[in-house]
């Protein structure tokens, strides 16, 4: 009976390896985190079931709520600026690189190169460059006669987040450029020719032909960027420590979660709050899942055909 069912539906067996991996590495951690978030914890010991208390703590009780909304705001700013940069500068460069000109290949490689570096290396490299005492960045400003503009970029609450976002963009931008370029090259040349024959100028061709056809690619990259930025942790951790120095001005959900779960690494050990940290992780998952879901739906609806 069972054997016959399997003979008929042999594909189930082929799904099994993937399914097992997915269960062990995705479903199990997620459900166990959900489980953890429903209990009160005393250090490493699990206490009593407490319903949604941990979520209430994160969302309503000071100082957790202040830190949570603060971190969420920073993630949103982080995403906002990155999104604007990649869909203007990134798209512009991608369009540029689709033209066959001497040197563009090299330029494209240069833009993509930082993406192949590890985040930790990028963070460390820029820490050195931006060092206010002997960093090359402020030195360069002085040499250019712009000494007034020299700042402790990573040490001021007003500039720190922006600086981290720019460092991230420096590394990240090569990826959207590459994907946009692939999308642009997938557009058949016939459409462009047809439009030009109809008398459209360069901008009109871009606005009414290229842009709508590359829109799904932009949308997908945007969603990927969103997911990545709302889960990111390492760059801020490397550059600004686990509490998002200075004064939480670069604190993001990733560092807030890490600090709550494992204690602040710079204080050399304090008890973690597993229940509250799990609640934060679940909230992060919900934000990413819901926004991505609606994002993907929007892309599907906005697809055009010519």
């Amino acid at each position: 009976m069972v054997i016959r069912w399997f003979q008929k539906n042999i594909y189930v067996l082929f799904l099994l390896p993937g399914l097992i991996l997915y269960t062990v590495f995705m479903v199990y951690p997620l459900t166990s985190a959900l489980g953890f978030s429903l209990f009160s914890w005393d250090g490493l010991v699990r206490g009593a079931y407490c319903g949604l208390d941990n979520f209430r703590t994160v969302l309503q009780q000071a100082p957790y709520n202040i830190r949570f909304w603060n971190a969420l705001k920073h993630n949103t700013i982080f995403f906002g600026i990155t999104f604007v940069l990649q869909s203007t500068l990134g798209l512009f460069l991608a369009v540029l690189f689709t033209r066959q000109r001497r040197g563009y290949g090299l330029l494209q490689t240069l833009f993509f190169l930082p993406y192949t570096l590890s985040m930790v290396i990028v963070g460390f490299l820029w820490l050195l460059l931006l060092n206010p005492t002997w960093g090359a960045f402020n030195k360069a400003l002085h040499l250019l006669g712009l000494g007034k503009w020299a700042q402790p970029w990573l040490g001021q609450t007003e500039t720190a987040l922006f600086t981290v976002i720019m460092v991230n963009a420096w590394r990240w931008l090569g990826f959207p450029i590459l994907v946009f370029k692939a999308g642009l090259q997938g557009i058949s040349e016939e459409y462009h020719e047809a439009a030009r024959v109809d008398g459209a100028n360069g901008w009109q061709v871009f606005r009414y032909i290229t842009l709508p056809l590359v829109m799904p690619t932009i949308g997908m990259v945007t969603i990927l960027t969103f997911i990545w930025i709302f889960n990111t942790f390492e760059l801020v951790f490397v550059m600004q420590g686990s509490s998002g120095n200075p004064y939480y001005s670069t604190d993001i959900l990733g560092t807030f979660f890490y600090r709550t779960a494992f204690g602040d690494s710079t204080t050399g050990g304090e008890p973690g709050q597993i229940g509250i940290a799990s609640a934060i992780a679940i909230l992060m998952f919900l934000i990413v899942a819901i926004v991505s879901y609606f994002g993907v739906r929007m892309i599907r609806q906005s697809e055009v055909e010519y």
Binding site: P63, G155, T157, S243, Y247, R259
Partner: peptide, 22 residues
């Protein structure tokens, strides 16, 4: 340092706020 947020975490970050003029 027996609970979270620990006195150290609070002091460190609040001092940063004060020193940065925030």
């Amino acid at each position: 340092r027996y609970g979270q947020p620990s006195g150290s975490t609070l002091l460190q970050n609040e001092l940063q706020g004060v020193f940065a003029g925030e």
